[in-house]
């Protein structure tokens, strides 16, 4: 199968100005403060893939998701979707048909549905807005969508508060599918759900992907979930992608010390008695990120070079890593999860 590229993101940056108001700055001193939420991220997603971004809170993974669907304009960098550049609001406004091809599923099923609207109207909104169908056909399509996500067509008459968290997430998915998109950005779609419900939603998403030939960008902090759903995984730390590769490769042969650290921190359900190495330190503030490789403050292999120079990503057998230790070949072999 020829790998058709759906999304191409190059050197994407987004800075947020978190300075105090002008008057306070003048009176109390202190300059502008900028959070580098996303600082030069590049990746590609091919048709039918699930590309996941993982990382701890504040690493910028949700910001990437919001940049791609256009909720924020990027500070710099380019977003090319199905061959069309959507790198700024003007380009997006010129290509509403492309915007319609991408949709988003949100984290909080309690906040992502308008509480005052009937479920049928919520799902029909993209259809009515784009005038895809009219009259009775809208209702029929809504019923079809509801059944596609495992609910009943009769549920269209109800309000969101009559549903459980998992059912609401199904409604969110139905709304996202209403405009027949082929690319879905899923921002932590299951992290607010219970495990048994999470399994339902993950299975549903996989089925839909297969039957509708969807491409996913999946954002999550849960490595186990990510390993289950993705074909490719990117690990983010403080606004940068530190490692990305095919899922199997990344989990079997993690190269970046941060990826290894995350894998080590996963609770062991098999109870093999594996001693977990608790990770040292905490994520530094993105306002004043450490110099050089931002991970050097927690990295056991950090050297002078790591403190001074930002590592560039290099590709080793399809695996991309931004780490000086890997480049210099002084990183020990990964002993594996079961060790």
């Amino acid at each position: 199968m020829a790998q058709e590229t759906v999304l191409q993101v190059d050197n994407l940056k987004r800075y947020f100005d978190v300075s105090k108001p002008w008057l306070s700055r003048v009176l109390e001193g202190g300059g502008r403060q900028v959070v580098q939420a996303v600082d030069g991220v590049s990746f590609e997603i091919s048709k039918g893939e699930t590309f996941s971004l993982v990382g701890e809170s504040g690493c910028g993974k949700s910001t990437v998701a919001r940049l791609i669907v256009g909720l924020y304009p990027p500070t710099d960098g380019s977003i090319v979707f199905e061959g069309v550049s959507l790198s700024n609001p003007a380009e997006r406004a010129r290509h509403p048909e492309k915007q319609a091809r991408m949709q988003m599923i949100f984290q909080d099923p309690y906040a992502s549905l308008n509480p005052r609207w009937r479920v049928g109207d919520i799902i029909a909104e993209p259809i009515r807005f784009r005038k895809l169908l009219e009259g009775g056909a809208v209702k029929a399509r809504v019923g079809e969508l509801l059944e596609q996500v495992g609910l009943s067509a009769r549920d269209a008459e109800k309000y969101p508060h009559e549903f459980s968290g998992g059912q609401r997430q199904r409604i969110s998915i139905a709304r996202a599918l209403a405009g027949r998109p082929d690319f879905l950005v899923c921002d932590e779609p299951t992290s607010a759900l219970d495990v048994s419900v999470q399994a339902q939603i993950l299975n549903l998403m996989k089925e839909l992907q297969a039957s509708l030939n969807l491409t996913y960008l999946f954002i999550s902090h849960n490595l186990a979930v990510v390993s289950h759903v993705s074909t490719k995984v990117g690990v983010m730390y403080l606004g940068r992608l530190v490692e990305w590769a095919e899922t199997r490769t990344l989990f079997n042969r993690p190269k970046h010390p941060y990826t290894r650290m995350l894998l080590d921190a996963i609770p062991d359900l098999d109870m093999s008695g594996r001693a977990r190495t608790p990770v040292a330190g905490e994520v530094p503030s993105p306002i004043n990120p450490p110099s050089g490789c931002t991970f050097h403050t927690r990295c056991p292999f950090a050297t002078e070079r790591c403190r001074a120079e930002v590592p560039q990503a290099l590709s080793v057998d399809g695996q991309n890593v931004a780490c000086h230790a890997v480049e210099e070949g002084r990183l020990p072999e990964w002993r594996g999860l079961a060790a």
Binding site: R66, M102, Q103, M104, E125, G179
Partner: peptide, 9 residues
């Protein structure tokens, strides 16, 4: 998020 969803639409 429901407002953001409307924006994405």
């Amino acid at each position: 998020e429901y407002v953001q969803a409307a924006r994405v639409i």
